[in-house]
Design a protein around this nucleic acid. Structure first.
Lengths: 338, 338
DNA sequence: CTGAAAGCGCTTACAG
DNA sequence: CTGAAAGCGCTTACAG
């Protein structure tokens, strides 16, 4: 079934069928209804390739995921197979579906894959793109966003002046997240709050700055040896926390992610201390797995469904902009007021 | 950049460029190289919409996931958001990428969504399709597979004669899985082996039949009250196992999935028995979460990466066929020889 | 082996 | 408001 058959059946020209299909305003209601009825009756769907070739973009949104770093330093989950990406893909698919868009998933393992992607946009095969998983400031990403296509980036633009003027982005507010975790502990009466830093990426640093900011605003000094670094690694968090416990005096510990919180809890309990009675723990990410251990970890997290929705909703808006997703907190049993 | 520009630069016609692009055999090597060089040099990628319109299918494989049952009976995970689907999506994407295909994900929530999908195939927008998550024997699936497009179904065709003659499918061998789990326990010296059934779907029944078959082949009778049913539900498995322990005498228990194994272990330990010293446990699915509890559960599982690869590799083969994925076993600490 | 030309099924200025 | 016609960028019989 093609448009000229619909045209014949409706007693109009192909042009008019096309106008109805594309919601032109200069079609009288009576004509519109007549044509639409025939379309519905025969379940006509226009040839997407022909539409694209003639200039109307397809209802497809391309999700571009970087999996270039997959061999990088240790961590329990990494790359496009991490729960983070899997969930993000899922939420993107749902959010897109709500807008009548389908999702084409493209895992990039090589920077030259960008060529193909660009062509998809030029040729209207794809209406919009969401790009995720590249390190902050990646130039392929910034260039692509600057190209004028409907492309939005997740966690790729920094907050500096230059970035902001070229950005079209959804960012997780890791600074606010770090602050939120720390303030939560402060609100429970804690003053001697330790911190485990992740790695050296911007998001990790922002979480640390959030911690420092909350402590500073509360007027609490950072005591000696209360800040350690464990590269988002459980094992390293375990080792470093053991050292921390011997040299510092804390009643609470903010771990930049839940994986490290697992290591920290193990170290704490091995030292004969209890969570949360002796030391309260706040993590980051709100991973499912803490359902299965003794302590459901109190954890700050980014709502990935919100990120996905914001992306799909904002991808057709005019840049520049950076929209932030404010983290949320999930209260578990690993924290206690003092 | 379009094909006539490439043609001009290479000193040939558009026809020849097209022939090179499509790997026609009647192009002399010298010509091929000459044209290919220009293509590479300019990073030319053909317009996919034009190709599709002219008759060459796009390098896109559509993954069609059913999320119609999402409100069905209780279970920890269900619908397209389950780890099962998330991982499957990921492996499909990887397997497709290896063959130079991209994946368009389409979550179906309404049977009429099939219309749009069919059009994508008719119009060559999509080269192949993988359909997953529908109940066994779903007629939309069987019809679509029968339509002659490159479409393959996962776990949708039963083994009966009629199905087999119309099938193009990859199936998990749940019967073999049930047998494998039970035989594993038998090989460890167990004779009094209990069983927890999932729900009433074919896959659950097949696992049960595998159990019965293994017991039968070993010549062990099914003792009274050793088979219970818990609908893949942790809570229910907990309750039913409590009853089982009071009325039956077992040294091992095969749980049709890991979720139920969790409930069973809880019940066993509450009754003052130990896993695996008093009762060995084998689960099904090999879920990650058992990493985080006391017992890494010995578990039979389907290798989803294998399923994904088989799908992508077989989708262009001629039907009818059903290929089976034989489960694997992951040995944990929940089993012990007697 | 290769080019000129028709055709794929739409959209959209253009003319009325 | 609406139709005839050109054009989107390829592929592929057809003729040579």
């Amino acid at each position: 079934m093609k448009s000229d058959e619909i045209a014949k059946l409706a007693g109009v020209s192909r042009s008019t069928v096309s106008r109805v299909l594309n919601h032109y305003t200069n079609v009288p209601e009576a004509t519109r209804v007549k044509v639409q009825n025939v379309i519905d009756q025969y379940g006509y769907t226009p040839n997407q390739a022909a539409r694209a070739l003639a200039g109307t973009a397809n209802d497809i949104i391309e999700l571009v995921i970087a999996d270039i770093d997959s061999t990088r330093d240790s961590s329990l989950f990494r790359g496009a197979s991490s729960p983070y990406f899997l969930e993000t893909i899922y939420f993107m698919i749902n959010a897109a579906k709500e807008k009548g868009l389908m999702v084409l998933v493209n895992v990039i393992t090589n920077p030259k894959d960008f060529n193909k992607i660009r062509v998809n946009f030029q040729t209207k095969m794809i209406k919009a793109g969401i790009i995720i998983g590249f390190p902050y400031g990646n130039s392929d990403v910034t260039n692509w966003v600057a190209s004028g296509y409907n492309v939005i980036a997740v966690d790729n633009f920094t907050r500096d002046e230059i970035s902001i003027h070229n950005a079209k982005a959804i960012n997780s507010d890791n600074f606010e997240g770090g602050k939120m975790a720390t303030s939560y502990l402060i609100s429970k009466g804690h003053k001697k709050i330790g911190f485990i830093e992740g790695d050296s990426r911007l998001s990790a640093i922002e979480r640390k700055n959030g911690y420092l900011s909350a402590m500073n605003e509360a007027g609490y000094p950072i005591m000696p040896n209360t800040m350690i670094k464990a590269n988002y690694n459980e094992e390293m968090a375990y080792t470093e926390t053991k050292k921390l416990l011997k040299s510092a005096d804390i009643t609470a510990l903010f771990c930049s992610n839940d994986i490290m919180a697992m290591g920290a809890i193990k170290a704490i309990e091995e030292e004969g201390l209890r969570v949360p009675e002796d030391i309260s723990i706040v993590g980051f990410d709100n991973h499912d797995f803490s359902k299965f251990i003794k302590h459901k970890i109190t954890s700050v997290y980014i709502d990935l469904e919100e990120v996905a929705k914001k992306c799909v909703d904002s991808v057709f808006e005019e840049p520049p902009f950076i929209k932030f997703c404010i983290p949320k907190i999930s209260e578990g049993t690993s924290t206690k007021a003092i």
